[in-house]
Each structure stands twice: as C-alpha cells, then as structure tokens.
C-alpha cells in the first residue's frame, strides 16, 4: 500500500529526481526544436520515431505524472480539510493525470507503429 500512498522520504526523493529529469528533457526538447530544419508534420513524426526520443518522451510523461501527483497531493492536503471533499478532489486529480498520461502514451505508440 505504501507504494501507492507514497509516504515519508519517498515522495520527497521522487519529486526531486523527476524534477531534474523533466528539466533536462525540456532542455533537450528546446534544443531539438531550435535545431530542427523545419516545423512540419514529417519532421515531428521523424523526431518521435527515433528510439531515444520516443523512449525519453515516454519517460518524460511518466515523470510528469509522478511529479504532478505529488505536487497536487501536497497542495490538496494543505488546503482541503474536509475528508470527503479531499477524497473527491484527489480522485479527480488522479483521474485527470491517468487519463492525460494514457492519452499521451497512446499518441506516442501511434508514432512508432505508424
């Protein structure tokens, strides 16, 4: 259960490790965008087709999900004190994150299968 609840030092570590990865990936994404020959569909798909790019992007999505969950959870625990409302808000957040994450993974999968 503690794997899901993320108690103690674990969320603190995950938050920082994911933050560093997100920052590095965004830097790489910015570099790729600036050095791209042109902004068009084929270049974009070609970039995503590279194994390093699609895998690091999938890892980026995963890092965002963890980072956003821990961050939003902390905010909710600080400001929402009513237990029922808290459960509702946390459920909405996790639903939004999982939905968005699966949506992004589906898109990434599409770029490698064609």
């Amino acid at each position: 259960m503690s794997t899901f609840v993320l108690e103690g030092l674990r969320p603190w570590v995950i938050q920082r490790v994911s933050a560093v990865y997100i920052a590095l990936f965004l830097l790489y994404l910015l570099y790729s965008a600036v050095t791209a020959h042109s902004v068009d569909f084929d270049t974009w798909r070609g970039w995503l087709f590279q194994p390093l790019n699609s895998v690091s992007m999938a890892l980026f999505v995963l890092a965002i999900l963890f980072h956003a969950w821990i961050g939003m959870r902390d905010v909710v625990l600080d400001y929402v004190h009513n237990i029922m409302l808290r459960i509702l808000v946390l459920a909405l957040i996790i639903g939004t994150l999982l939905g968005s994450g699966l949506w992004a993974f589906r898109a990434l999968l599409l770029t490698v299968t064609g």
Partner: peptide, 21 residues
C-alpha cells in the same frame, strides 16, 4: 504548479492531435 497541472490534459490532447495527420 497548479497552473501547469491544469495545462496537462490540454497538452496531452494537442500532442495526440499533432501526431495523427
């Protein structure tokens, strides 16, 4: 951070759209 969280579904939607055609 909360603003970026709110942007996540929209970003995922745009990512999905950008790779379809």
């Amino acid at each position: 951070g909360v603003l970026l969280f709110l942007a996540i579904p929209y970003a995922a939607y745009l990512l999905g759209l950008s790779v379809t055609s």
